[in-house]
Simulated assay, not measured.
Amino acid sequence: MEETGVFDIGFLGSNFTWCNNRRGRARVSKWLDRLLVSGACSDLSAAISVTHLARHPSDHAPLKMSFVTRLDNKPRPFHFLNVWMTKPELLEVIRQTWGQEVSGPPLRVLSSKLLVKRRAIQAWNKQSFGDIFDAVRKVEVAV
């Protein structure tokens, strides 16, 4: 695999993809099937997942490959980055956005304030740090 420049992206599910379907001590289970990806696709490996499905009634487990794309337009989860705490301006961004008046039921107020705060922190992050995830990807490729 090293010589050809491919690597296994891992899997979810059972550790074995084949079984001889015998009982007791005669039973043999092996991990035979895997998905290999070339080095040229290494940046896509996070978007690909493999699941070992149930073998029943066969002796081989089918592999289910899933490809995740950002074309689904679902909102990305908000991740707080510890590096933000190195900049004292973050606290002021949070204070300004949290202090804004919002009316409505308590849960709607909380949800609105969190949404406004998230957008403000994301804008501040782009201005203060740039795209950290892009920088990490570039460093990983260089390494």
Rank of each mutant, 00 (worst) to 15 (best):
5 G>D: 07
101 E>S: 06
101 E>H: 09
28 V>M: 11
18 W>Y: 09
101 E>M: 04
46 A>L: 14
79 H>M: 08
114 L>Q: 08
68 V>E: 09
137 R>Y: 04
110 L>Y: 06
71 L>T: 09
2 E>Q: 11
18 W>G: 03
44 L>Q: 09
71 L>D: 15
31 W>M: 12
108 R>G: 07
76 R>K: 14
40 A>L: 08
38 S>W: 12
118 R>N: 13
53 L>T: 09
121 I>W: 10
10 G>Y: 06
32 L>K: 00
91 L>V: 10
31 W>P: 12
77 P>V: 10
17 T>F: 02
6 V>D: 03
120 A>W: 03
96 Q>P: 02
67 F>H: 11
123 A>S: 07
53 L>K: 10
15 N>M: 06
90 L>H: 05
44 L>P: 00
102 V>M: 13
5 G>R: 01
98 W>V: 12
90 L>T: 03
30 K>D: 12
26 A>I: 05
142 A>V: 07
121 I>N: 02
99 G>I: 05
75 P>I: 03
115 L>V: 06
62 P>R: 09
45 S>Y: 02
58 S>G: 03
62 P>E: 11
126 K>F: 13
7 F>G: 06
99 G>L: 09
131 D>S: 07
68 V>S: 12
123 A>N: 00
39 G>N: 07
91 L>F: 10
65 M>N: 06
59 D>R: 08
102 V>P: 10
10 G>W: 00
54 A>M: 10
48 I>C: 00
55 R>G: 04
125 N>Q: 14
140 E>Q: 15
28 V>Q: 14
